[in-house]
């Protein structure tokens, strides 16, 4: 396992852990949604979802990602402005 791969696993688990206040399925969906919206394709592709180091929620998230289509937004952080909309921002 490369350092990058380990880091990606860690990141996925960390995301999942911070959604733990949700129930298992919702946390997995939120984790999957987060990864879709914020991860570069090579990062998504680098994690198969079968890694033993993945937490149950993170593993389920990658199972969701293997299904066709992207998950719907699960939090407002992943609801972005429409083309002509100016209200929301996620300025850092």
């Amino acid at each position: 396992m490369s350092d990058t791969h380990s880091r990606l696993i860690y990141m996925a688990n960390q995301i999942a852990r911070n959604f733990c206040a949700l129930d298992h399925d919702a946390a997995a969906a939120a984790t999957a949604d987060h990864i879709v919206q914020f991860w570069d394709p090579r990062m998504k592709a680098a994690v198969s979802g079968d890694e033993a180091e993945l937490s149950p929620i993170a593993a389920k998230a990658f199972a969701i990602l293997r299904q066709p289509g992207d998950p719907a937004p699960q939090t407002r952080a992943t609801v972005f402005n429409d083309v002509d909309e100016g209200g929301g921002s996620d300025a850092g």
Partner: peptide
């Protein structure tokens, strides 16, 4: 590519995530 980032990554990017989630906009 979309490989563009900025120093907000290392300072207030959590503000973006946190305020957008709660208030709908992070400013």
């Amino acid at each position: 590519s979309n490989n563009v980032d900025t120093c907000a990554r290392v300072c207030h990017s959590p503000t973006g995530y946190g305020l957008k989630t709660t208030f709908g906009t992070s400013a």
